[in-house]
Design a binder for these strands. Structure first.
Length: 416
RNA sequence: CGGGGUGUGGCGCAGCCUGGUAGCGCGCACCGUUCGGGACGGUGAGGUCGUGGGUUCAAAUCCCGCCACCCCGACCA
């Protein structure tokens, strides 16, 4: 994509109405646009990052038998009344509205109830189980206070996976597979060394739920972590008794702030019973389906990564989620330079490298500053200098060293 | 929802205390000089001063209401 064509404009100064570094960086670099408190639009670059994160999550969900679908945003009141979760006293973050005929509908803050009820239309026999479905959907939550940029917003994208199992044993086995899949996801995103499986409140269904907490100064959770055992306890359930129960040593736990990037819940069969989600077993007996729900906040993850993968010059995306592989900076308008840069652009593009080609007539300093701010993994420079050497300059965003390559070596060097 | 702060061209800000024809920087457009880490000079466009009311000859400025945004707290499935 050429810089002269893409819908992108960076800013030198941070917006006054943002303090969170994720929002400052993402707005300055042209990834997101703030529309209201806790309401952000994804610009072309931001959308690419979100799609890249989704793809990693999608691959790991598919690998454990998940099937992708898409639920609706409008939800029926009666459905949520069945589980006593329509009332604002039970769920205080509802956005609610009315149809023209005056009947009430809710805007999706979760899809646990709708998806469970929908599945009851498809699950009748033990032969229909287990079933694993997931989606990437926009959640709307009327947060009393949105904050920390896109770490806590009123409208955000979440991956939610739901498991429907025959019994507790089958459920537990899948639950463990999801934990393993989540570890894989955070490893691929480069966050595994700072992301901990965390014991948190499982009320009212089980004693514990599990969260994946990423160590982050801007996070809003407090956890106590054991670095060796890669396990943590959320402050909300922290006690001597719990430490003992989990086989941890109080003296080895470090108190840290963290951001919740994933969570998994065991609902047991209580919700299934209320929603009529039952099946007939091998002996003809009616049984309630065992339910589990597994979330990953996709846009929050983007915010966490923006905070974590950054330096004083801007973003430093891991290759897997970066909106492009390479920032190609053309430092001059001279014909020879333009021709060489155009050639590099098509060669790289043809070899499968995605390139953001800065073909503007801007000064070098501005291009370098933009390249650093936007944070693509690699930068290629074409200038009169590089042409004199009959080569192209390659530099990693994380490394100040530059390397010279011939055109035919460039694609290979980037793939390496 | 409690406490604190802030709303002035697209962005960042000054002006407000002490009322008197709205200013600076960035960005934008054009001209010239520049050209390897956000250049320089010149010209120009662009503003219901968040909003509603009040005081006054006169309100960005003083008073009252409301709205929005940020931070702290409460909340956070």
């Amino acid at each position: 994509m050429r810089r002269s064509q893409i819908f992108l404009k960076t800013r030198k100064e941070a917006p006054a109405d943002e303090k969170a570094s994720n929002a400052q960086l993402l707005i300055r670099a042209g990834y997101i646009h703030k529309d209201a408190a806790g309401v952000y639009a994804l610009l072309p670059l931001g959308l690419k990052v979100v799609e890249n994160i989704k793809q990693v999550v999608r691959e790991e969900m598919n690998a454990i038998g998940g099937e992708e679908l898409l639920m609706t945003t409008l939800q029926r009141k009666e459905l949520w009344s069945k589980t006593e979760r329509w009332d604002d006293k039970a769920v205080d973050i509802w956005f609610k509205t009315k149809l023209k005929n005056n009947s009430e509908v809710g805007l999706a803050w979760s899809h646990e109830e709708p998806i469970s009820e929908m599945m009851s239309a498809f699950i009748a026999s033990y032969r229909d189980l287990p079933a694993y479905v997931y989606q990437f959907q926009t959640k709307l939550r009327n947060e009393p206070r949105a904050k920390s940029g896109i770490l806590r917003s009123r409208e955000f994208i979440m991956k939610d996976l739901y498991s429907f199992s025959r019994d507790a044993k089958e459920h537990e086995a899948y639950y463990q597979r999801v934990i393993a899949a989540y570890h894989k996801i955070f490893k691929r995103l480069g966050l595994d060394d700072i992301t901990y499986l965390t014991f948190a409140s499982g009320e009212p269904f089980t004693q514990f739920s599990h969260e994946f907490q990423t160590i982050l100064p801007a996070g809003e959770d407090v956890i106590y972590l054991d670095k060796v055992k890669k396990t943590a306890i959320n402050e909300e359930v922290m006690s001597d008794e719990v430490i003992k129960q989990l086989g941890l040593d109080k003296n080895k736990l470090a108190k840290t702030t963290a951001a919740e990037v994933g969570n998994i819940f065991n609902f047991g069969t209580a919700k299934s019973q209320k929603l009529g989600l039952t099946y007939t077993d091998e002996r003809g007996a009616e049984k309630a389906v065992a339910l589990g729900s597994y979330g990953i906040g996709i846009t929050r993850l983007m915010g966490v990564m923006a905070e974590h993968f950054a330096d004083d010059k801007g973003l430093v995306w891991p290759a897997l989620v970066a909106p492009f592989d390479v920032y190609l900076a053309r430092l001059s308008d001279k014909k020879t330079v333009v021709e060489a840069a155009d050639k590099a652009y098509s060669l790289l593009t043809d070899s499968g490298v995605s390139v953001l080609y800065d073909d503007r007539s801007a000064r070098p300093g501005e291009m370098f500053a933009d390249a650093d701010l936007i944070g693509l993994p690699q930068r290629v420079v074409v200038s009169e200098q590089t042409i004199k050497k009959d080569s192209f300059e390659l530099k990693s965003r994380q490394d100040p060293k530059v390397h010279l390559f011939k055109l035919d070596e460039l694609a290979g060097a980037l793939h390496a």
